[in-house]
Design a protein around this nucleic acid. Sequence first.
DNA 1: AATTATCTTGCAACATAGTTGCAAAATAAT
DNA 2: ATTATTTTGCAACTATGTTGCAAGATAATT
Lengths: 140, 140
Amino acid sequence: MDNRISDILRRNRLSVTESRQKILNLFLSNTGALAHADIEHKAGERFDRVTVYRTLQAFVEKGILHTIPTADNSIKYALCKNDCFEGHHHDNHIHFVCSKCGKTECLDDFIIPAVKLPKNYIANNIEIVVNGVCNNCRKN
Amino acid sequence: MDNRISDILRRNRLSVTESRQKILNLFLSNTGALAHADIEHKAGERFDRVTVYRTLQAFVEKGILHTIPTADNSIKYALCKNDCFEGHHHDNHIHFVCSKCGKTECLDDFIIPAVKLPKNYIANNIEIVVNGVCNNCRKN
DNA sequence: AATTATCTTGCAACATAGTTGCAAAATAAT
DNA sequence: ATTATTTTGCAACTATGTTGCAAGATAATT
Ligand SMILES: [Mn+2]
Ligand SMILES: [Mn+2]
Ligand SMILES: [Zn+2]
Ligand SMILES: [Zn+2]
């Protein structure tokens, strides 16, 4: 399999195994976020449910993937772009869910704006999920 | 039970039953959002799981409650303040989750700001959930 | 107020999502 | 090549959510 993939795994001190390579490959060769179920079935390949759970969990811990909470209460996973590492995520960008094609995207260049809060409230993390119609679906 | 409660139910064309009154009362006498589990056990009272699901669902449909998606992928429910009605919610405010006391609040007066999106993207709905420390917990 | 019609509830049974312990298999270290 | 460590898959389990249906409660009608 791709060399880049085993590099990423080794860099994060994860032993390179077949399922980790295949699951990571799904994210690298896919734009958009994936749900657990997507991964479990993807491409005819079938991984054990438990392995998928543990792999996603490991990837999130290591800062390879981040989670996206969506309105329908299903977690999606997407690649971290740059400066995330073990236990320290910096994925402060807007997420977009298209109601036509269902795709969930990271809008990596669209920074979370400052939000006003009541007096003495402290913000640590701000999640913004926009639901709407993406460029592609608007045209068709 | 409180008169106001049966009024709300009748106004929404819901027959006034004991469980609906008790569950609605929980929200009226409680600041902050409640999760399904909170409601199921609340105050020694025990309602059947199925009844709680169906009641919450009915209240959301009627515009009495709205849902709040949280980062840990658990839905919370909170009262709609004003102009929500059957199938048309207008709860476009910020939600705040305190990481100390765990309380989830509707910041009803804190309007969702406009967010920049890529060209040709259309926003229909914007969810903002802020995680941090509330006024109360900051002082202690 | 009594009867009838409609709606709601609780139970059982089911479906799906997620977790844990453990032996076997795979990977990494020596 | 051998040993040590990590990961996997299975089974068994818990938690969460859904559906059909008969019995009970509420609302409408007389
Ligand atoms: Mn993202
Ligand atoms: Mn709210
Ligand atoms: Zn789209
Ligand atoms: Zn607090």
